[in-house]
Simulated scan of single mutants.
Amino acid sequence: MTLRLRTPTDPERTRILYLARYAPDDPVYEMKAEGIASGYSEYHFNLFKELQGIGYRVASSSKPYAAWLAGGNVDYVFSLLNRMPIRNPEIFVSSLCEYQRLPYLGAPPNIRALAEDKYLSKLTFKSLGLPVAAGAAYAVGAPLDPPDFAGPYFVKDRFGAASEGITPDSLQETWEGAAAIVRRLHAEGREALVEEYCPGLDVTVPVIGHEPYLILGHVAPQSDQIGHILTEDLKLDDHLGNCLIDVGATAAPIADDVARLWRGLGPIDYFRVDYRWDPETGRRTVLEINICCYFGRQGALALAGSRWGFSRRDLLAHVVEYSLARQVSFRDQYRWIV
């Protein structure tokens, strides 16, 4: 099967503002020293160079306020600035861009916020008819009453990214053990989400916007932890990597899940749907949707794209061009109403 991706016809006419925590700051376009997050400096710099390699005119900044100054100066904002020390940081850049009617990467602010809230997104998935694990949210200071489902339990940050805060003891057999992990998260100022643990493997499904979208494949992030859970150190170091996986008959219901998500939340430039999948029973459980997910050469998106013959650069160019095309037509409808 031959499938074509979008390609820029004249990339030099597109001015892009690239934003990321370790993005080079104009005018010194050099890779920054590594920070506390292993590998992110190199990753952010390499994506900057890849956008330049496509032929786009790319300015770059690690400062979120650069988005406020972008209006009239750029044609598109490619932002990976998803984590900042504020509440709901994932919508900061997209909201600024919406105000300026400036096309940007990802999805509208309301969809971004929904995806980052692992509890509200769980409720949304359930309403769309997707299979989800039982779960309960615990705000800081809330009573730690046991949930209405039995263990084993899996405890995580309700708003965590890249498995932030997940350690081997996030998996607990008893409520007493789970409550202790909730208290630890609360002590760090984090809200907690407690879920019914689902046996099996993590499987992620990368999707790109297309006509209307394309499921690239099924990828299993590797884990050497008890319960095959993905801990924060595995996500940051990624020494075990990913592998393509055949999910057999489960591919059809996964495709139906993606169709339901797209009808309810789309269009989205690119995203992953993360599952727990039990190869013994075929049971699948949707964990979360990840918008603007990792675009590294060894990541799930690039790995799944390779089976179609797509390079990381091919996918990156397509995502930018798709994103520009989907946003160019509806800006004029907005007007002040008060």
Rank of each mutant, 00 (worst) to 15 (best):
E191W: 08
C198F: 12
G264R: 02
R190Y: 08
V286W: 06
N242L: 01
G177R: 07
G227C: 02
A178N: 09
Q222E: 14
L216E: 04
T204P: 09
V207T: 05
Q225K: 14
R260F: 00
D169W: 12
Y270Q: 05
K235V: 15
L171S: 01
A251E: 05
N242D: 12
R190G: 03
D256T: 11
A220L: 13
V194M: 09
A178S: 09
E173K: 13
Q172K: 15
G209N: 07
A178M: 05
R272P: 07
L234Q: 13
A251S: 10
H218G: 00
R260G: 02
G241I: 02
G241E: 05
V258R: 03
L265D: 08
G177M: 04
Y270F: 15
V273W: 01
V194F: 10
G227A: 01
R190H: 12
P267A: 06
D269H: 10
P212F: 01
H186G: 03
L234D: 13
R190K: 15
V258D: 00
G241S: 04
D202F: 13
E173T: 12
G248L: 00
F271A: 07
R263L: 10
V182E: 12
E173F: 06
A252E: 13
R283M: 06
R276M: 09
G241T: 02
P221W: 01
V258A: 01
T204G: 10
E280Y: 13
A179L: 06
H210D: 13
L201S: 04
D224N: 14
E280P: 11
G282Q: 11
D238A: 12
E195D: 09
C198T: 13
T281I: 10
V182T: 12
A220G: 09
F271H: 06
A192L: 09
A192P: 03
E196N: 09
G209H: 04
L244M: 10
Y213D: 06
H239R: 14
V273I: 15
L234Y: 11
D269Y: 07
E191H: 12
I166T: 04
E195C: 11
E195T: 10
E280Q: 15
L185C: 06
R276N: 05
